[in-house]
């Protein structure tokens, strides 16, 4: 595969090339590191928004309306819709596109569905790298939608510029369950289905919960620790509240930009990515090194062999064996083994 050529076609927004490049990332192709290196200089300009919330609150409908609103403002949009794979069979049904058809066939929009494929760490990496590929094709906004509030979602959202949490007046139980998780990293909350009964009580309750769940020691990204998280209402299936949501997001993001916090946040994200990269490489190597596996197996059960001591022994072997060549491949070699 000619990576340079592929990069060129991605930058020219050729949909099939973007799509096949994403599959390379998803399938852990040996060429994906080179590919990501190739597109790196085209990445960093777009704003990335995470959208999450419990099932059935209308996330995809919100995303659908956001796409349309952004297109009206002449912005190009990429969307990654993440859904869980079945833990029993490894398959998945990805149905978010059903709700994302408002704009029809449009070259300014690229939507990709992604299954979690059962791994949480790898998922956030694949998502971020997929976002890079889509962004390199000239998108102004990247929206990442996930269901639920598990650890992997939190990981994904550490990498975006703003997180929108979508709820509905029926989400009372869900809030209780997610207090400590996503509530802490949400930057904007939208209560969708605002025409449902119980809206006012829900919003009041939500604001009380937020006070408790976000103590002052957890500084809000958007400024001082006292900043109140915006709580908006919407009725996405009727297009109500979307312009306000977008305005709030844009204001929030430009505030982040001006204060230098966006740059800081992105540096943090990159640092985290680099760390993950190193760790992944080490882990892959460790898992595939048969000598070390054998050594560990042999040591277990021996008198006086504590886990710590066995680990030290293994590390010594690892470093002694000139692992440099394996861990830091020459240009030709990609990741994976």
């Amino acid at each position: 595969m000619d990576i340079n050529n592929l990069v060129k076609r991605i930058v020219a927004a050729d949909k099939l090339s973007i799509s096949r490049a994403i599959s390379m990332i998803e399938n852990n192709s040996p060429d994906s590191d080179n590919l990501l290196d190739g597109i790196h200089k085209y990445v960093g300009r777009a704003l990335r928004i995470g959208v999450t919330g419990p099932p059935g609150v209308g996330k995809s409908t919100i995303v659908n309306e956001l796409i349309a609103a952004l297109r009206k403002r002449d912005k190009r949009v990429g969307v990654i819709a993440v859904d869980p794979s079945s833990i029993f069979c490894g398959g998945a049904i990805l149905g978010d596109r059903i709700r994302m058809q408002k704009i029809g066939v449009d070259n300014g929009v690229f939507i990709r569905s992604m299954a979690t494929r059962g791994c949480s760490g790898g998922l956030s990496r694949a998502t971020v790298e997929t976002a890079d590929i889509i962004e390199a094709s000239g998108k102004d906004y990247i929206i990442i939608e996930t269901v639920g509030v598990g650890q992997s979602e939190v990981e994904i959202f550490r990498s975006v510029d703003a997180v929108v949490l979508v709820l509905s007046p029926e989400s009372g139980d869900a809030i209780q369950a997610m207090k400590a998780g996503i509530m802490e990293i949400a930057d904007v909350i939208v209560v969708n289905k605002a025409d449902r009964p119980g809206l006012d009580a829900f919003v009041t309750n939500l604001k009380n919960t937020l006070e408790l769940a976000r103590p002052q020691s957890v500084p809000h990204l958007c400024g001082s620790s006292k900043a109140k998280i915006p709580v908006l209402t919407a009725q996405a299936n009727a297009g109500i509240g979307i312009a306000e949501l977008l305005d709030t997001l844009e204001k929030y993001l430009s505030g982040l930009k001006e204060s230098g916090k966006l740059a800081q946040r992105r540096r943090d994200v990159l640092r985290e990515r680099i760390k993950t990269h190193i760790l992944t490489r080490l882990e892959e190597h460790l898992l595939s090194d048969k000598k070390i596996t054998k050594l560990v197996d042999n040591e277990i059960g021996k008198a006086g062999a504590t886990p710590g001591k066995i680990a030290q022994k293994a590390l010594r072997v690892l470093i002694n064996r000139k692992t440099r060549k394996v861990l830091i491949p020459s240009k030709k070699r990609g990741r994976g083994v």
Binding site: G56, T61, I93, G95, D96, I98, R99, Q101, N237, A238
Partner: peptide, 10 residues
Amino acid sequence: FGEYKEPPTF
């Protein structure tokens, strides 16, 4: 009146 879109259910 607008048009209806169904929720995906499997």
